[in-house]
Amino acid sequence: MQVQNPFPLSRDELLTVYRQMRTIREFEERLHIDFGRGDIPGFVHLYAGEEATAAGIMHHLNDGDRIASTHRGHGHCIAKGVDVVGMMKEIYGKKGGSCNGKGGSMHIADLSRGMMGANGILGAGGPLICGAALAAKYRNKGEVGICFFGDGASNQGTILESMNLAGVWNLPVIFVVENNGYAESTSRDYGTAVDSYVDRAAGFGLPGVTVDGTDFFAVHEAAGAVIKRAREGGGPSLLECKMVRYFGHFEGDAQTYRAPGELDDIRANHNCLKILGDQLTAAGIISQSELTKIDEEVMVLIEHSVKEAKAAPFPTLADLTTDVYINY
């Protein structure tokens, strides 16, 4: 007997989405371990816990649609189709990495995939995505721009100015607030005077919607509506995704600012991968063994990417002065 698929995605698409979210999770879990071992240099901000938001939004996008990411960008990259091996090499500072080792975790970019870069400057993506959307408007192919930013970065002037600019120029932009409750160690509520991002969007004349960012289908549906609107010339909107952060602000953060038991609760009750897996198996269209098989394949991919990254050569002195204009 054929089981009815209750979801707006095909079985194959659902498997792909699950694989993508699992890939982000295992990529980050692995970085957490390897950073702890001292294998990885620099500042590393992990996206684990937030996968459903990246996957739910990016499912609607093509390479011609642009995203501006954040310092916590690995999940955006993977969901936008950036090569995982290239990313791992980049994070290890190796030649052949997404940016040839020059950018690192905070600056992974792949313009061919419409990924305009992770960013070390909070709020920098707002104006940039307005530019991407302006270019899209000129091309007139229905492409959109998505600007990701955290609850903390939502208070940057650049973001607020960009919401106004996008409104004034009627740009196909979605402002996505990734609200994980914290900016570094400071709670969202301390740093943001208004409770609702929907209210804030209204102040700029933009429609806004809040969703449970740990529920893939909730994000997928809400994102689908605002992206469709933007593609059809309806202009910008704001989408707030409420989510949880699995690890510290960056690797090495002891997280004493969290309430006792908070992390246990997050991992037990707000695990977006488990939520998706349960939804799929409960509907009876995908079996646990299929999911387990994907989990295993993802582990192989991540292991492969780490091996490749470790084996890859470092850049050399000649690479130091390429990709920049030097006239003396």
Binding site: E184, S187, Y190, T256, Y257, P260
Partner: peptide, 20 residues
């Protein structure tokens, strides 16, 4: 400054960071 104290508005420790 940003997080020069740390933990503000939360339910955990205050002065959680003392700057980055």
């Amino acid at each position: 400054g940003e997080d020069i104290v740390g933990g503000a508005g939360g339910n955990g420790e205050m002065d959680a960071w003392g700057g980055v």
